[in-house]
Design a protein around this nucleic acid. Structure first.
Lengths: 180, 180
DNA sequence: CATAACATGTAAGCAGTTACATGATTCT
DNA sequence: AGAATCATGTAACTGCTTACATGTTATG
């Protein structure tokens, strides 16, 4: 139940239209929460109906016309309440680890295929890591150390370290598979 | 679409009943895939209907009676096919990182609450890490280096390194929050 | 014989994915 | 005028979560 809170957070940082939100979910917000435009439009509708956000006054509110949203006090309260509540970490559910374990019972042909698959994932995670490091350099250079900036930097650090976990583990796994 | 494959993998490793599977999903299988007993029973029904598994012959197949399943050739084929297919990593969706970013816009009271929350998560991840390290010591001691064992060990290493990522990042984040 | 633990299921609701629909604006 | 892009949506489906239902076996 976190997508509405992700949207409220994004809109508090900067009022946006559905498509702008979609772009932000593909970029910066993407390193801790992903969402498609279909999810976002549906959720914007619900949040507006619930009185937590509102569309900014616009001359022509028609289909195909940009519609900007901002957070209302009720939305801010809801978000604060959610942050104050405590919530346990969700158990892991990772398809790649599962497929490697499946390969162990599916036989040698499957293990060979996994080797190529691990290499493919390694390349993707290396690219993602490079992108995050670039974002860190551009967004959190010297002088950017307000309270909010420090917290946002911490979150980005999380994304970076997570990608580093993947590149490290995949490298280790590939080395192990190749010395069979 | 991976739960059926997780179940096929588990049943190939060892034919089991629904409850036994549930226990295994809470323990060893849990470090790469989680599932509740409701999910498992529903999926066992579907897999049986699809002819991928079968219930072992039993004198009384009644409600409340244990029912053991084993994988049929069709199930093994399906699993192998799934391992051979390639699949991209799913984008991240982590509620704790999101809540930290939300705290940045929700104000100082929220940030204080997050400090306690991060400490709580750190304790949980430290406990999980200790458990995995214990499993590693017991299950992959010297002499356990068959092909299948090495792959299973790699998967457990993934679980271990992932917990280590969390304990490291949470420690870093707490230190940063406390020196405000 | 009551209770706890074992064992298997059903039902409703919510969240996420995939495919499709439709209008407006800009570019060639 | 046609195509690409911008922009907002709908609908159907799949998978997961939460709450509840029900029977069996072992134990004190």
């Amino acid at each position: 139940m976190s997508l509405p809170h992700a949207i409220l957070t994004a809109l508090l940082e900067k009022p946006s239209s559905g498509l702008e939100l979609t772009r932000r979910f593909d970029r910066s917000i993407g390193y801790f929460w992903s969402a498609t435009h279909q999810q976002i439009y549906r959720e914007l509708g619900k949040l507006e109906e619930a009185g937590q956000i509102r569309a900014l006054p616009s001359p022509v509110p028609l289909r195909g016309q940009k519609k900007e949203y901002e957070v209302l006090p009720a939305g801010r309260d809801e978000l604060t309440g959610w942050v104050l509540r405590s919530e346990d970490p969700k158990p892991i559910r990772d398809a790649l680890l599962l497929r490697l374990r499946a390969a162990a019972v599916a036989g040698p042909r499957a293990v060979d295929a996994m080797e190529a698959e691990l290499a493919r994932h390694l390349a993707m995670h290396e690219a993602q890591l490079a992108e995050y490091l670039d974002m860190e350099r551009r967004q959190f250079g010297p002088g950017r150390d307000s309270e909010a900036d420090r917290l946002r930097h911490l979150v980005l650090r999380g994304g970076i370290e997570l990608e580093r976990f993947w590149t490290d583990w995949l490298t280790e796994a590939l080395a192990s598979l190749r010395t069979r």
